[in-house]
Amino acid sequence: MSPEATGIAPEEAPSQTTPAQPTHPGGSREMTYLEAISDALREEMRRDEAVFCIGEDIGAFGGAFKVTDGFAEEFGAARVLDAPLAENAIIGAAVGAAVEGMRPVCEMQFSDFIACGFDQLVNVAAKLHYRQGLAAPMVVRLPSGGGFSGGPFHSQNPEAWLLQAPGLKVVAPGSPADAKGLLTAAIRDANPVCFLEHKGLYRYLREPVPEGEYVVELGKAQMIREGDELTVIAYGSAVGLATQAVDELEADATVLDLRSLAPLDTEAVLEAARRTGKVLVAHEATRTCGVGAEIAAIVSELAFEHLDAPVRRLTAPNLPIPFSPPLEQAVLPQLADMKEACRELLDY
């Protein structure tokens, strides 16, 4: 994949100017985004016997992306359960196990396949507490995103589908440390949590990640850069792209990493919008009724008087993600697109 697709070279992982977490007493270790996800899963499975993984090819094979590599040896096949190709059964069984006191972590081999388990997710899991007062503590891991010729069925970013199902929590980490901390919080949460892990970041991002127990609270955005003339609101792969763009432009800009899409940190969004007066929302997912549309609406409704420019969006257009590299790069937001969008708003 091209560096522009995700924006951040390994040595340029975003430094956190205003870290939300205190320095971790247990020390830290350099990890990729993928290793951080594995680390969180391993820590939680060691801590709590109720935590188990279920998904396709996650046991002996270690998962299509090797997130659970070595898990079957450490935890036994029963807790790293290879499932048949049956996404509704995986998610439905997770609901049943969760209400029985287990903490299932489902892996969709690619986030695209959540479409095959959608009914159990949105009709059973999401509504269970509202309808019945019954908590279903479970996580659905969703390897998402494009940039490597995965084509229309291995490159999607399905968050807007999920955000239309009240009752789900949806998180999308943009850094290895957040991947670990958010996954830990997701496993401990009492609700169904969809965990969007961007495949393009798996082996691309590397940074020091706290060792041992590390929790990042769900529903809290994080400021990656603080500036006064523009706010770029992003999540997932767009965070690195936004950070690189404002750094290269030497812009006096705020970069806000949403981290959680549901619940959304509306306060952080509004604070940044009011302070800077200009907002760009950036994500790799398609445009219509996406997170960008929602943020733009919130900012227009609640911070209109503070705006110095229209809220702008940088997203993929409403198209399937095509296969061939030049076609795919034409669809996915690139670093040049991000810089141009920032420049336009700064000049407005």
Partner: peptide, 30 residues
């Protein structure tokens, strides 16, 4: 379904409770 009485309430999509009951049985077996 009364959670206090060990029941998970049905949804309209059928047979969605079959995978859920299967999952409860999975927890029991584990």
């Amino acid at each position: 379904g009364d959670p206090e009485l060990g029941c998970v309430g049905m949804v309209s999509m059928l047979p969605d409770m079959a995978p859920v009951a299967t999952g409860m049985a999975l927890a029991m077996k584990m």
